[in-house]
Amino acid sequence: MMRSQNEIVSMATKAARGAGHLSSLAEDMGRATLWLCENGFDGVGALIEEIRSNNGPVEYQTGEDGITLSGGSAACLAVCAMDGLAAGISQSAILKNTENPLMLLGVCAIMSLDLQTGVKLGDWAKLGHGELVALSENPPTSDCTFRLLTKTKPVMIESDIRQIDIADHRWSVLETLAARTYVPATAESRTKGAGAGLTDND
């Protein structure tokens, strides 16, 4: 079924929250999902894989080669890596978790837009200001080294917004996860909600 951007971001964010991810990270995952979908990738598939993955704490070490990040989900590692590079902690960041490269790509894309920078993901992908600059056929299978690119030109995004077709069975998975954030309404809530307690035929 065709879905609006807002529906995709909202549902993906809620699904990530429902799966136990932190609110702030869930918002990034929601935006990354939309970016992937808009760029022709299986964003919802990447999200589903992501929310089933390790959601533990991030471990990081700073060494001569830069920051090394392990543990945590791909999205969380990508966020930490991009933050660390943008803050100048080091020139490169090595990610030990590359099990979900699409989510790495999506999160890096939205963060490269937020940070107004370019980023190189190993030999696999280059992103600039939220736009995909280059992508090879082979995603990383082991460690992936991130580097910020200083010479990427800002791209004026002329978005021709159109709705995106998401398979119903995929959407159902997100709905099920999102439902974990919902609370059944109580009698108290019903008696206090808008329109309650009045004759509606007045």
């Binding site: 990040l69 933050d83 803050a87």
Partner: peptide, 8 residues
């Protein structure tokens, strides 16, 4: 950035 790696 470093603070949030520990306290996301």
């Amino acid at each position: 950035a470093e603070f949030l790696m520990t306290y996301p």
